[in-house]
Every structure is written in C-alpha cells, then in structure tokens.
C-alpha cells in the first residue's frame, strides 16, 4: 500500500524531525527524571511515525514491521524498564545537573547549529535527505552525549545514550528508506538487552554506593 508520494513523505519527515528536535532541546530543560523518561517514549513514538511514513511511501512490508518494532521497543519496553528501575531504587526524583539547565540549553542550541553546519554538504547532495532529518539526527546524537555529560545520575546517562541511539535510528530511517528487517531486529534486541544491562548495573551501583551519582565511581580507580 503506497499512500504518499515522495514529496509528501519528505514534508512529513521534515515535520517529524522538527518535533524530535524540539523534544531533544526540551529534554535539556526537564528536571524530573520520570518526565525525561516519558519524553524518551514520545521520541520513540515520533520515530515510529517516521518509520511508518517511510513504510507508507515505499510500500515495503518490512518497513511496517520496523515501525511496529519501534513502537514496542522504544515506546513500551525501554521506558518501562527505566521506570521500573527508578521505582525500585526510590530516590529523589530530580536530575542532578553539573551544568545549569539554561546554559545547557544554550549549548544544545549551539550543538544543533554545529549539526546543521556539519551535514549541509551531505544533505544537499541527496534529494531524499534534504530538510531536517539528517541534521536533526546529528543534533539528537550530540545532545544525547551532552545529557550524559551534564548529569550526574546513572539513569540520566542511560537516557542520554538512548537519545543518541534515537538519533542514529532517525539517520538510518531517513537515509536508507527503511533498513533490512534483520538489521532492524538486531538493533531492537540490542537496545533492549543494553537497557536491561544498564538497569542492572544502575541497581548494583545503587546497592554499592547507596546513590546512583556516577561521581562516586571515581573511588573504583585503583
């Protein structure tokens, strides 16, 4: 079933990308851990929408499956695991930031500009990649890394790395018109296992140090 022509699809992908960018910038400002996890779910939903757009444009059946997997993994499973970890270790629900959120926002905007600047030569070469998808993908990546840097708690760091992974996923969707199913499945499993392991490690850190402030890991250095 082909619902959109390429023009429409591009328009839709552009809009979705802008929305993703907004969520990424917003994530820097959010101070409650729980909200930042819920924001991840929103990002996952947007990514699933992007995948669905690609599916409806190309009509390839595996693209539908990809969209479905995205919903399951990124909207349900991953945020679910993180919320459970958060619930289990019962700590203060605020993020602890190293960099004040306003400055972080400025940095994030700067990074977005860097992203646009960096990808502009690539984006202008391929018609399908014009617009916001690719630069948004790179900014998601950079802002994710910034989140990891700027926050102290281990959960925030997991949130950051999942944001990075979202950026990569957006890039894949935008650049390839849908990944092969095997790759899609692999990435999905990888993410779930990765988050489970990170959740376990977070619990372990909490049990050992009675906090999930990663600054304490410094004492592990021999």
């Amino acid at each position: 079933m082909v619902l959109f022509d390429v023009e429409t699809a591009r328009g839709l992908l552009n809009s979705i990308s802008l929305l993703l960018l907004v969520t990424a910038l917003g994530s820097v400002l959010i101070l409650r851990l729980e909200s930042s996890i819920r924001l991840l779910a929103v990002q996952g939903l947007l990514l699933a929408a992007a995948a669905a757009v690609v599916a409806l444009t190309t009509g390839a059946s595996h693209a539908y499956v990809a969209a479905a997997i995205t919903v399951i993994v990124k909207v349900l499973i991953v945020p679910g695991i993180l919320l459970r970890v958060l619930c289990e270790i019962r700590l203060k629900k605020e993020v602890e930031a190293v960099i004040p959120s306003r400055i972080a926002l400025l940095l994030a905007i700067g990074l977005t500009l860097v992203a646009y600047y960096v990808v502009s030569p690539i984006a202008s070469r391929d018609a399908f990649l014009t617009g916001n998808a690719l630069p948004t993908a790179v900014s998601l990546l950079l802002i994710g890394l910034l989140t990891m840097l700027a926050r102290k708690k281990a959960i925030s760091q997991i949130v950051g790395i999942i944001a990075m992974e979202n950026g990569l996923y957006l890039m894949a969707v935008a650049a390839t018109r849908g990944l092969p199913l095997a790759v899609e499945l692999g990435v999905g499993v990888d993410l779930v296992v990765g988050v489970m392991v990170m959740g376990l490690v977070t619990r372990q850190i909490h049990r050992t140090f009675d906090t999930i402030n990663t600054d304490h890991l410094r004492s592990l250095r021999g």
Partner: peptide, 14 residues
C-alpha cells in the same frame, strides 16, 4: 588520562 571520572571519559568522546 584516566581520572576515574565518568564525565571526563564522556568529554573525551564528546
């Protein structure tokens, strides 16, 4: 190079 600080390592990558 190895300070033991997670943030330092992330900064290297960043």
């Amino acid at each position: 190079l190895q300070t033991g600080s997670l943030r330092m390592y992330l900064s290297y990558m960043f």
